[in-house]
Simulated scan of single mutants.
Amino acid sequence: MTLATKGAAGSGPSAYRIRPGRPEDAAALAEVFHAAVHGLASRHYTPEQIRAWCPERPLTEVFGRRLSDGRQLWVAADAEDVPAAFIDLEADGHVDMLFCHPRAAGLGVAAALYADLEAAARQDGLTRLHVRASEAARGFFERQGFAVQQRCVFERDGVMMHNYLMEKHLF
């Protein structure tokens, strides 16, 4: 699936193609994660919370494992086939990660990724999706039909943080 989008800051049109994640995407996914947390999520969390969430660039190996552990993962890749956003789905309906690089934010890329995820979930016979959404992602998931079940407060590296347990029933 190709998603045509308006280019950032008037730079002209660009296109993002949705495709399955591949092992060779691991380094790019780590970069997207880092850029999303430090660029987008920093609007909703304190500098201390951002450092606790993502203190340094995540290891490529972490994302490499996630690409081979049985979950489904989709990326939105730019014209050079470089991932700009990604989403994943675990077998039990858990959406573990949705991260978008700031260069692709606001262009409909996350919505296109989510549409592919939900279609796959329905095809797999899942009846419920659930996520622990950050403050930055809460509104996005609400627009996709998820409902907040509870606000979750937790500690990471001595810093108090929060996210939202959300779910959506697929009928």
Rank of each mutant, 00 (worst) to 15 (best):
A26I: 13
A26E: 09
A26R: 00
A27F: 11
A27P: 08
A27W: 09
A27H: 13
A27K: 10
A27Q: 13
A28G: 08
A28F: 11
A28W: 04
L29S: 07
L29R: 07
L29P: 06
L29V: 12
L29T: 12
A30G: 10
A30C: 11
A30F: 05
A30H: 09
E31P: 09
E31G: 10
V32D: 14
V32S: 06
F33P: 11
F33D: 15
F33K: 11
F33Y: 12
F33C: 15
H34W: 12
H34P: 06
A35P: 06
A35E: 09
A36V: 01
A36G: 12
A36Q: 06
V37K: 02
H38Y: 10
G39V: 01
G39Q: 02
L40Y: 14
A41S: 09
S42H: 01
S42G: 04
R43M: 04
R43Q: 08
H44I: 09
Y45S: 12
Y45N: 04
Y45G: 02
Y45L: 03
T46L: 01
T46A: 03
T46H: 03
T46P: 01
T46R: 06
P47K: 06
E48P: 14
E48L: 08
E48G: 08
E48T: 09
Q49R: 02
Q49A: 01
Q49G: 02
I50T: 01
I50H: 03
R51C: 08
R51K: 11
R51W: 07
R51F: 10
A52F: 08
A52M: 04
A52P: 09
W53D: 02
W53P: 02
C54Y: 02
C54N: 07
C54A: 07
P55I: 01
P55D: 00
P55Q: 00
E56F: 11
E56Y: 14
E56K: 12
R57W: 07
R57Q: 15
R57S: 13
R57G: 11
R57T: 07
P58L: 03
P58I: 00
P58C: 02
L59E: 13
L59Y: 10
T60M: 07
T60G: 08
E61I: 15
E61T: 15
E61F: 15
E61C: 07
E61N: 07
E61G: 14
V62S: 13
V62I: 12
V62E: 15
V62C: 07
F63H: 05
F63E: 08
